[in-house]
């Protein structure tokens, strides 16, 4: 049976791991390689690295970091943040990334999804969607959640699937950083609208929140950052708990 995936996310800024709370306040949560190795050893099913460095110059250090990560861990990992061209994708995949995630650039130029899928295959393409409930609907936000796009989340999810996305990483900005649980309604709506896997993100604060997202939605993975970074909950504890709740877990 296919297992539900537990995916820690590391936000990378200038080569270090950080995590924003509601996308604004940032705390340092350590060295990315050390954290990644710890997570892999602790049972992480995949790892996502999101580069939030402000300048192109700083982003270049990301390639070297990706090469080091690829040498150090033997589980799949995704790299995202600021990817806007085929060359960006090629550089990351050549450096050893298994998948890339695209966000703002794909909203601004949706053909990017089709270009990446046709060149490298859908299996390496995660479309990250930042969504926020506003004016009675879930809308897509870009630029790390700073800019509203007016696009309905469901519409965008369907479009990314049609263009060749391999999976969708759906982050609820309303929930992100709150530790009050995942956004079950939009996660389930998107899961039911498309036939590609959905990774739920934003709001995980307890072991029960993962059980909730796996029993009340069709999400195939759950992503979180701070709950794992500050050793509030270890991945192995979470997986042991989910197994006792009869959720398929590696």
């Amino acid at each position: 049976m296919l297992k539900k995936r537990i995916i820690p996310c590391l936000d990378i800024k200038d080569g270090r791991t950080v995590k924003g709370v509601n996308f604004v306040n940032i705390r340092d949560a350590g060295d990315p390689i050390e954290l990644a190795k710890k997570y892999a050893a602790d049972g992480a099913d995949e790892i996502v690295f999101l580069d939030i460095s402000a300048t192109i110059e700083k982003r270049k250090t990301l390639i070297q970091l990706v090469e080091r990560i690829a040498r150090e861990i033997n589980i799949p990992f995704t790299v995202g943040g600021g990817i806007s061209t085929i060359t960006d994708v090629k550089n990351l995949i050549t450096a050893g990334a298994d998948k890339v995630s695209v966000n703002s650039a794909a909203v601004q130029r949706p053909e990017l999804i089709a270009e990446i899928a046709s060149e490298f295959g859908s299996q390496c393409l995660v479309v990250a969607i930042d969504t926020k409930f506003q004016e009675n609907d879930w809308k897509v936000f870009i630029h790390g959640g700073r800019t509203p796009s007016k696009i309905r989340t469901i519409d965008w999810a369907l479009q990314t699937e049609a263009l060749g996305a391999g999976e969708i990483l759906l982050t609820s900005m309303n929930n992100d950083g709150t530790k009050n649980g995942f956004a079950l309604d939009i996660t389930q709506q998107v899961s039911q609208s498309v036939n590609i896997p959905i990774i739920a993100s934003g709001g995980a604060g307890s072991l029960e929140h993962f059980k909730e997202v796996f029993t009340k939605t069709a999400a195939t993975g759950g992503l979180a950052a701070s709950i794992f970074h500050y050793e509030e909950k270890s991945i192995s504890n979470l997986k042991t708990y989910l197994k006792t709740q009869n959720i398929p877990i590696r």
Binding site: M1, D45, Q123, G166, E167, N195, I196, A218, G221
Partner: peptide, 13 residues
């Protein structure tokens, strides 16, 4: 066939 999520992504036994 599209009877479940495709691609098949993740850990399976």
């Amino acid at each position: 066939p599209p009877k479940n999520k495709v691609p098949h992504i993740g850990w399976n036994n």
